[in-house]
Amino acid sequence: MTRNIVIIDYGSGNLRSAQKALQKATKNLDLPLEIIVSNQPEVINKAERIILPGVGAFADCYEGLFSIANIGEILEQRVKCDGVPFLGICVGMQLMADAGLEKGNHKGLGWIKGEVKPIKPNDKNLKIPHMGWNTLNSNQTHELLKNIPSGKDGLHAYFVHSYHMEVENESDLIASSDYGGQITAMVGKDNIVGTQFHPEKSQKLGIILLENFLRWKP
């Protein structure tokens, strides 16, 4: 029986790239996995792992996600109760916070204590959005960062965002980047993890991270 990895489709941006990158990682690992893009509750319910992408504004993404019937209950059951490995990407990661302060104050999933706030680099010459390639600093060891060199001479991840998650508990911050101060790059606890950067667009680093996610046994 093939096992399903589901990318939740709620009309947000670039799902094709995420699907293709995960297929590439699957192929590299020679795993019998099918990468499905879906908004069907019965498909999400059977997923072995769940990926929540997200491009656009926080509130729009939250609304889009919750336009899927019963998605709140499904995620609660699958991710919080059954412990299915969950990866949020970009705004999909930001949605895991308690609240997002982009264009108002909006409720999030509340899985990671913290708020999504504007990036405020201490160097006024730095451009916003934080757009392009940056290296990662590892704040905690994590299975998803295995075989990914971090620090000044490490591999690069592709970022494009103006807001980032400020976590309440330091232990939830897995990795960060430097952009006139610390930028949250990756958060996680238990079976949930999220990246502010786009692994599906981060060439070498991205594919290694996705391979790690597919093998991750939290």
Binding site: L126, H130, M131, G132, W133, N134, T135, G151, K152, H156, F159, D178, Y179, G180
Partner: peptide, 8 residues
Amino acid sequence: MTLKTRII
């Protein structure tokens, strides 16, 4: 350590 200049 910050953003790298991009070549496009």
